[in-house]
Design a protein around this nucleic acid. Sequence first.
DNA 1: GAGATATGTGCTTGTCCGAG
DNA 2: CTCGGACAAGCACATATCTC
Length: 304
Amino acid sequence: MLYKSRTTPRELEVYQYLNTRIKLSEIERKHLYTLRKGFEGEVQFDRLTSSIQSECLILNDLLLQQNRSTFQIDTLIIAPYTIHLFEVKNFEGDYFYDYDRLYTKIPPQSEVTNPLIQLTRSESLLRQLLQSLGCNLPIQSLIVFINPEFTLYQTPINKPFLFHSQINRFLENINTTSGKLINHHKELAEQITAQHLIDAPFFLPPSYEYDELRKGNTCENCGLFKISVAGTKCICKECGKMELSDTLIMRNVKELTKLFPDKKIDTNTIYEWLEGAIPKRTIGRSLKKHMNCNGVRQWSHYEF
DNA sequence: GAGATATGTGCTTGTCCGAG
DNA sequence: CTCGGACAAGCACATATCTC
C-alpha cells in the first residue's frame, strides 16, 4: 500500500521552467537532463512497486535527518519482517565495475560515483533513525538499476544490485511473503513521514532574475511559446494541444510561484507574465476562483 | 512655510447584461 | 455557463487649497 507518494522535486521543476524561459548553460542543461532522468527512473520504479499486493507500506521520496546528517531515500518499503531500502538509478548504456568503482565503458572511460557509497551511508543513518524510534527490523538495501538499456560488466555477484531483468522477480518475492502489518509498522511509517523535510537544504538553483526571463505562455505539452488564445480555448500552434484559459492561468501561477516564491500574485503580475495574452478580467476571475483573495481592488493579491 | 484638509486622477474590481 | 463590454464604486497617491 502506498503510504507516502512522490512529488516532482522543486529543483527539477525550477530547472524545467527556466529551460523554456532563459538560455541555460551547457552544464545546467546537463544537470537538468540528469535530474529529469533520475526522476523518471524513480517514477518508473513507483509504478512497479504499486502493484505489490502483500501487506506493506510504501514510502517514496524521503528526505530525513539523523545526527545532523541529511539523507535521501528514493523508496522505503516497510514489510512485516523487513525494511527494504531502495536507491533507484536510471543509468543507461555500458559501464564496468572495477575495485569498487564504476566506469563508463565507452572511451574516454570516466568514473561515476558508485551508488553503493550513497546506499551504505543512507542505510547506516536509517538504521540509527530506526533504532531511535525503537524499531529493530532488519534493513535490506538495494540499488535498483531501472533502465533496461543498462549493462554493468564485471559485476561482483555479492553486490546489492537489482538489475532491470530482476526487478519483477524480486517484487514477486515480496508479494508472496506472508505476514501482517501491526500497529507498530503504521506508527513507524507515521513517525518517519513526520520527519520528512520539505525543502532540500542543498538545492542551489542557477541565479535568475525576473526581468531576464522570457514572458508569455508556454504549451504544457511541448513547452513552446506558440499558444493562440481564442475565447476560453488556448491552442498550441505547434502540437495542437488544447488547454482551457482557466487551466493555463493557474498553471502559470504555479510556475511563477515556484520560480519566485516571494512574488505577490495579483491580476497584473499574471497579466504581465502572460504578456497580455489573456484579458485581465479572465485572469482575475480565475484567481478568485482558485485562490484566497487578500485586500480589495488594485490592492488585491492572492494566496493558495 | 508647514501641516491639515479638499479635490482630482489612476487603477482595478463588482455588477449587470448580452452574445456565443 | 463563460466571456467581455459598459458603467459604477472606491482606495491610494498626487496636487491644490486652506489655516495658522
